[in-house]
Amino acid sequence: MRGEVWRRGLPSGKKVYVAQYRQNGPLPALEHRRARLPDARLGGQEAARRGRESGSDPIAQRRAAGAVSLFSEIADEFMRTHVAGKRKARTLEAYEILLRLHILPMIGALRVTDIRRGHISKLLAGLAEHLGAANRALSVIVAVWRRFRCRCQTIC
């Protein structure tokens, strides 16, 4: 196994130390944000050792993380499979309006696993003048999230 560690500067001005090692193929890069180069070298060596011992492939892990669906995809599936068949027409229409006008513009492009409390708080703050819409939007988000969790448990 061969490894390298070097420092790279980000556009923000932050220093990033990159540890790269070869394990049965191309060189996957593992980043370590450390204050000093010796710490980055040790961190890179430790990450490489853990990768060798576990047989993990960082590239495959990144691809698996990228396989997580976007919130908009999960919301579309939720609307097709759950709401369309089990709710009244007016409820379907209200959910579609909430998704189209408020929810999807804010969090639709995010992967479901990347959505944080701050995203939801920002969305609800934008609906502060319309408390009923904010409460309904939150209930739709929670319902979509629960649907995602159920789907993950059956797939994973």
Rank of each mutant, 00 (worst) to 15 (best):
R2N: 07
R7D: 11
R7I: 10
G9L: 08
S12D: 14
K15D: 15
K15M: 10
Y17H: 05
Y17E: 10
V18C: 07
A19P: 01
A19H: 08
Q20I: 08
Q20E: 14
Q20T: 10
N24I: 07
N24T: 12
P26T: 04
P28L: 01
P28V: 05
R33D: 06
R34Y: 08
R34G: 05
A35V: 04
R36V: 06
P38L: 03
P38T: 02
D39P: 03
R41I: 10
R41L: 07
L42Y: 06
G43C: 04
G43K: 12
G44V: 12
Q45L: 13
Q45W: 02
Q45P: 00
E46T: 15
A48K: 11
A48S: 08
A48L: 07
A48C: 05
A48Q: 04
R50Q: 13
R50F: 04
G51V: 08
E53W: 06
S54L: 13
S56H: 12
R62K: 14
R63G: 01
R63C: 02
A64D: 14
A65F: 01
A65D: 13
A65S: 13
G66P: 07
A67V: 03
F71L: 10
S72N: 06
E73S: 05
I74F: 07
A75E: 01
A75N: 03
D76S: 14
F78G: 03
R80W: 03
T81M: 02
V83K: 01
A84F: 01
G85Q: 09
K86E: 15
L92H: 08
E93S: 15
A94H: 06
E96I: 02
E96H: 11
I97K: 04
I97L: 02
L99N: 03
R100A: 03
M106P: 01
M106H: 09
M106V: 09
M106A: 12
L110E: 12
V112I: 15
T113V: 13
T113N: 10
G118R: 15
I120M: 08
S121R: 10
S121P: 00
K122D: 13
K122H: 13
A125F: 10
A125Y: 11
G132A: 08
G132F: 06
A133Y: 06
A133E: 06
A134T: 03
A134Y: 01
R136V: 11
L138T: 04
L138M: 13
V140Q: 00
V140Y: 00
V142Q: 11
A143K: 02
W145S: 15
R147W: 15
F148Q: 02
F148H: 09
F148M: 05
R151M: 14
C152W: 05
C152E: 14
C152S: 11
Q153A: 15
Q153E: 15
I155H: 12
I155R: 11
C156N: 11
